[in-house]
Design a protein around this nucleic acid. Sequence first.
DNA 1: TATGGCTTGGACAACGTTGTCACAATAGCG
DNA 2: CGCTATTGTGACAACGTTGTCCAAGCCATA
Lengths: 325, 325
Amino acid sequence: MADVADLAGVSLKTVSRVVNNAPHVQPELIERVLAAVAELGFRRNPLASSLRSGQTNATIGLLIEEIANPFYATIAGAAAEVARQHDTMLIIASSEEDPAREEQLLRDMCARRVDGLLVVPAGDDHSFLRAEIELGTPMVFLDRPAGGLLADTVLLDNRGGARAGVRRLVEAGHRRIGILLDSIGVYTMRERLDGAQDALAPAGVPYDTRLVRDGVRDPAAAAQVVSELLEGPDPPTAFFSLNNRITLGVIEELHRRGSDAAVLGFDDFDVARLVPYPLTVIAYDTRELARTATELLFHRIEGDRSWPRTVVLPTELVARGAPPR
Amino acid sequence: MADVADLAGVSLKTVSRVVNNAPHVQPELIERVLAAVAELGFRRNPLASSLRSGQTNATIGLLIEEIANPFYATIAGAAAEVARQHDTMLIIASSEEDPAREEQLLRDMCARRVDGLLVVPAGDDHSFLRAEIELGTPMVFLDRPAGGLLADTVLLDNRGGARAGVRRLVEAGHRRIGILLDSIGVYTMRERLDGAQDALAPAGVPYDTRLVRDGVRDPAAAAQVVSELLEGPDPPTAFFSLNNRITLGVIEELHRRGSDAAVLGFDDFDVARLVPYPLTVIAYDTRELARTATELLFHRIEGDRSWPRTVVLPTELVARGAPPR
DNA sequence: TATGGCTTGGACAACGTTGTCACAATAGCG
DNA sequence: CGCTATTGTGACAACGTTGTCCAAGCCATA
């Protein structure tokens, strides 16, 4: 910048003013400075700038579980889009569901003085972030609530969606429903399971824990569990899979066996309409989830200091192929 | 940091030394400083640090087309994993296939003094990056080569894969093959199309441009094109779709019509084995692509100044369901 | 012509950190 | 007992930028 000032024959500060479009600089000087900038290929250093000004550095952080997962990739895409509209860069970090790693990454992002943080929480205690919040870093949690922390949160209506879906199965006459889930340790899974119970009880359908299988991590495991349940005594006539990886495995196994058990899946997926099996899914708008959260974050960054909000977005029941019997 | 120094009764510089694990500090002082750090909740500011030292700031940039696309999400995931092993943050930006935006984002990342850049190029002229490279920012291009720039590049064997796949169709007796592609403007598409031609010529199969359709952007468009070709005179007996979005549409339409045309698709996809149709795909390891590129980048960051390399990763033919006739 | 307000430019310090250097204290040597 | 190494410590400047403040120049008004 000093070189530019020399070449243009003005002071350092004048260059700074020109570069920042500050008022009160003669048009002729602006001209000269811009010419010098072009000639020397000067670009200001945003790091130094934000160090000095203490102001925003046009960066927000996004913490997710795993970027390669389409759900999180969609979130990242929507967040990036909103960030772009605000001329802001997005730093993405993956916690891999590890609370210790999550804490380290969040602290690291805060140390980099991001303007705000978008967090899909992995751990269940985020009180370590309280200091950061008080220090002025806005943050919004999405998909799952923060643990031990009052903060802006955007959630899906997991419970309501599961309730509606299972109610439909029950109304269609199913009384034995196999339920497959990834991990009861995850908030969304607990909510979905609660929703299923909500629907069973009023219909007088017993909640049979033998039909509920936790720890189903991938399609292969799901196929295996479906096998076991179908070959056991008093097999289910319907399956409720609590995420789309599981749904894939369930369908694959039912298809292989030629079974006509009904399938209800939480999470929609791209190729659902190609799947050779009638399938009802509980769908939601992932982009809208992320968009809402990111916009809320930018409100905070722009100075909104109102009481923390919690937004719950609706889910929708989508039937494809033949409806569940 | 000054506060920490006061509390510990040492100088600023000693605190800096302790924080950076520099040698030549008395164990007792280290003790006192760490206690003060803990008490005040001090964390050093990496921005200021990298401003002063001019050294790395433990950040690399990744430029892709669109983060929500599973292909790029997988790349981002693999890059993030390698970055994590090097204690480095990853900044991800999406160009949305817009060369102007690409240039702006790349310049912006360079201005933030990232340690290195991973680029899936969108435009076809990247000579504006030459200055950055000479200024010492290492960069690696992946999936597509840079335009007008000698730089490290990691590619897939698009041409060889397409050649092998089409050769197989030809050997199975197909002489009329419909070819559907997204955009001839994209490097990978051109390579794949060239590969197809490579396989046709030696078999004496004419390259009929009426069977080649450019501009097929999504599954619906692909379905439409398949319809047209099948209903036209002398319809194809096989289809080669140059990416997986197109493959989905092709299969959907063939399935709808009960057609038994053979399908060869570039790109594997998750649910390929669920698809109710015999399908051969040209598969490759996307994670390996990104991993190779990221590791090459870190070699450069760590000082490897050897001549730019180009790595080409193999593709593999995978047949699912019945083989093409 | 003197006064005051407004515009414009520049000197200086500061953001939080680290590299350089010098100095003090200690140890080792003849 | 001096002398040199060695080790530990701190003062200072610098990284590239911007906020603060002051001064100089200009115009309009009294």
